[in-house]
């Protein structure tokens, strides 16, 4: 496992260099190569791409950059236990598994028990209550009834061509 990590780490460095080395070229390409149909959105996509480029560059410059309360590299919410959480959780799985889930403190505790018992998570000892506090505070369930409304903010309205 450790060998594998090292190998990937090496590859990542390498690719990181290539990606950033050619960012200007890519931006040129999106301007000239992206003239596909349905392109009235291209401006929006480009601006998001630029935004992402900026964010990637920021992470490159500062691996642990915090902006608007978010740890830019992992998407985790910032507080005093952030680094503890990154260390304990993301060596085994993606931070996305945290950020997409919601649970009470007891619910998160149950997930820990499951990881202890079946997934080879080492005992977190005195760190466990701190990590649970972090998760329960930042990733708590929201009351939403038996079925939510469709997410209007997520709907991208478009004119449908019909006969």
């Amino acid at each position: 496992m450790i060998n594998l990590e090292n190998k990937n780490g090496g590859l990542r460095q390498h690719w990181l260099f290539i990606v950033f080395g050619f960012v200007p070229l890519f931006l040129l390409c999106t301007g000239s190569c992206n003239n596909t149909p349905a392109n009235n959105k291209s401006e929006k996509i480009l601006s998001e791409a630029e935004l992402e480029e900026q964010r990637l560059a920021k992470v490159q410059e500062n691996w642990d950059l915090i902006e608007d309360g978010l740890h830019i590299r992992t998407g985790l919410k910032d507080d005093e236990h952030l680094q503890l959480v990154i260390g304990a959780c993301t060596s085994c799985h993606s931070a996305k598994l945290i950020t997409q889930n919601r649970a009470t403190r007891e619910g998160w505790k149950q997930m820990f028990l499951w990881m202890y018992e079946t997934q080879g998570l080492p005992d977190l000892g005195i760190h466990e209550p701190k990590i649970l506090d972090y998760l329960a505070e930042h990733y708590a369930p929201e009351e939403e009834g038996r079925r939510k409304n469709l997410d209007m903010a997520a709907v991208e309205w478009y004119m449908l061509e019909v006969e």
Binding site: L25, F26, C29, E48, A49
Partner: peptide, 16 residues
């Protein structure tokens, strides 16, 4: 979009 961006960037780089 972010993923497309990363991938396109890499593929463009590879092409070069």
């Amino acid at each position: 979009n972010r993923r497309r961006f990363i991938k396109n960037g890499v593929l463009a780089s590879l092409a070069v």
